[in-house]
Simulated assay, not measured.
Amino acid sequence: MTPSDVPARRRRGPALIALARFQLAGYLRSLRFMQPLIPVLLIVVLVLKEWSNDPRHVDAATGSLGDAAVLTFLIGAWAARSLLDTQPDEQRALSITAAGHPVLSAAAGLLAAYTVALCLGLLLLAAPLLQCLSVGVPPTPMLAGVGLTALVAFSGTALGALTQRAIIPSPGYALPALLCGVTTALLLSLGPLAPLSVPMTGWLRAAHDGPSAFVQAFPGLALHLILWNTALTAVLFFLTRRPR
């Protein structure tokens, strides 16, 4: 690395943040955020209305943390694709030029999309957390629920990013690809090929088994999600820098 490379490396961090903020601002101005936000608010209202009907309050409250993670995965994938497709193609080309490298521009888009997915996931998690507090669930399972939501939000973001217009230009193929990807992830998690997918069945089973089972299972679930997220991010960056 030459001395001239050092200032360039130092500029990448601010450039990444600036590009992410730029994409977030465009997404908010377009009002596309209302598409995933409205279902999230409806789900929160339904959870608040129905949570006290189960006699096993503690186990039911802990189970709702796992349920919220499933919804976070689905809505995060949808929101990520919507945000990354907000930019017109010409504006995306200018962003790549400003970033100096397509991978840096892709990382900024991924950061912006993850920010939206995480906010939606935490909003979904608000009702289960209130439920857990109201029935006396210990703090550790609730912290595990927050950590699970943060990891799953990135999983959904990465999957949605792989179906953005920059990778799949045709909307006629991009939307079916997103639906196929989400469905495949759900189905794989149910069978012997579960290690290749998000551990959805694992976290649902652990969460519904009660606070202790959820806390014990969380480290393994977190490691599985980190590896899955890393693999999807690597694929995304490879496709981003691929000549077109």
Rank of each mutant, 00 (worst) to 15 (best):
G66K: 00
E90V: 07
R81W: 07
Q23H: 12
P36F: 03
L46D: 06
A61T: 00
L83M: 00
G26Q: 10
A20T: 00
I43R: 08
V44R: 15
L46T: 10
S95P: 00
L42S: 12
G26I: 11
K49A: 13
A61M: 04
P88Y: 06
L24N: 06
S95L: 14
A18Y: 03
L16P: 01
A20P: 01
L28R: 07
G26R: 14
P39L: 06
T97L: 15
R29Y: 03
P36E: 07
H57S: 09
A77Y: 02
F33L: 15
T97F: 06
A79G: 01
I96E: 14
F22L: 12
A98M: 10
V40R: 02
M34P: 06
V40S: 01
D85N: 15
I38K: 07
V45D: 14
A25N: 10
Q23N: 05
A68E: 02
L19S: 08
A93F: 04
N53T: 06
G26F: 01
Q35E: 12
T72V: 15
R11E: 13
P14M: 03
A93N: 10
T97P: 05
P39G: 08
I43S: 11
V45F: 15
G76L: 09
I17G: 04
R12T: 10
A79R: 03
I75K: 14
